[in-house]
Structure formats: C-alpha cells, structure tokens
Amino acid sequence: MIPDELRYTAEHEWVRSGGDTVRVGITDHAQEALGDIVFVTLPEVGTEIEAGQSLGEVESTKSVSDIYAPLSGEVIARNDVLDARPELVNADPYGDGWMIEVRPTDPADVDALLDAAAYGKLTGG
C-alpha cells in the first residue's frame, strides 16, 4: 500500500505536505517488515532535525529501527498517542500511526523526495 499523494524516502518514511508544514511517518512496507511495534521514541516539540539523521526509534518485538528525518526543519508536533498505543503504526501507518509534524527549513526539499512510483519500484511493489 503506497498512497499516490505522499512522498517517500529510501529509508521507508513517508511525508505528507500540508501548507508550510509536513507530517511524517513510516510506510506500510516498513511496519510490515518490523512486525508488532511495541515502543515508538519520538523527539520533543521544538527539536531541530536534520535530513538523513535519526530522529527517533521504532522497536518491535524482534528488532529496533531508526526513524530518519526525511528533511531538515523544526518539530512542531509529535503524535503523543503512540506513547501508549504504538500498535497504531501497524494498524494505520499513514493515518493514526503518524509520528511527527515538521516545519521544513526549505519547503522545496519535499519535491526532492521519492514519489509513489519511485518508492514502489524500490520496494518491489
């Protein structure tokens, strides 16, 4: 499942554009590969993140993965619900399982990310 309207990274994050902010999560492919997610560690609001750097972790019953910042900017919201209900990332990775919202340093960075077709090719879908 790779929604057409989103942008993607090769590290399996998705980015949804919305005005001057973007929403970030991990893809269906990523949650499927991880298995049952039990902890999500996210940055606090106000944190400056840098493209390509780890911004948090997703831990499943069997392994842990970094979440990489798809672009640089400031964290303006985090999905606090995931602290208690990390399984939402499995159940609804593009919806209730979203992770953070970012105000990009350069909004044009979004256009440099993969589109759905390119990400689909990458994941063999």
Binding site: G35, D36, K62
Partner: peptide, 11 residues
C-alpha cells in the same frame, strides 16, 4: 514460520 498474517507475535 516466524509469525502469521493477521496474527503477529503479540496476538
């Protein structure tokens, strides 16, 4: 099998 579709380790 590691886990099954519609199941998962927790279920």
């Amino acid at each position: 099998p590691l886990e099954y579709a519609g199941g998962g380790v927790l279920a």
